[in-house]
Amino acid sequence: MLISEREQLRANIERRVIDFGNNRSALIPVIQEVQQKYGHVSEYVMQVLADVLHIHPVEVYGVASFYSFIGHKPKGRFIIRLCRTLPCEMKGKERVARQLENDLGIHFGETTDDGNFTLEWANCLGMCDQGPALLVNERIYTQVTPQSVHDILEECREVFGVHTTLQEKEMSCELPTSAK
């Protein structure tokens, strides 16, 4: 990262911490914004947050490593999280998992060499009536079949290099009308 870029990031973080009340409770919302923008929370970011909030960087690391949706190591551009809880298991998540591994050529917990996909397990995604369910970043897919895995991955690949993000596209599941 260029020095000017780092300074920019530091300034952004300082500003957002103030927006969130300039106290410790700003920590997680700011970490989440960094996570969303950069895909992970780097040591540099942790140090900046520690400076701004007047806490030890290890405190920031402790928080960043506690939550499963916050990563302190770089991950893929698309993080696929397949629900492993009982109702999704009953609806055939094992086969979906196998097909995801086959199509991506990686195991769960790994990232593809091109840095595009990370495959992870998630605990209950709250879509038990429409399983198997998976999240791609923030976007939810329900009633996934081994066959539809390919379509989901293609959908992700289509948005590479395009300015639309995955979240802006229409969702396939039940959502409040105005959220669509």
């Binding site: 410790r24 997680i28 928080v63 499963s68 949706f69």
Partner: peptide, 25 residues
Amino acid sequence: IRMGAGAYVCGEETALIESLEGQRG
């Protein structure tokens, strides 16, 4: 609105408050 970050234990009310305060849940 404050967002959780994928920790089941934060559904416990005191863990939830810890999380809101920027701590481990």
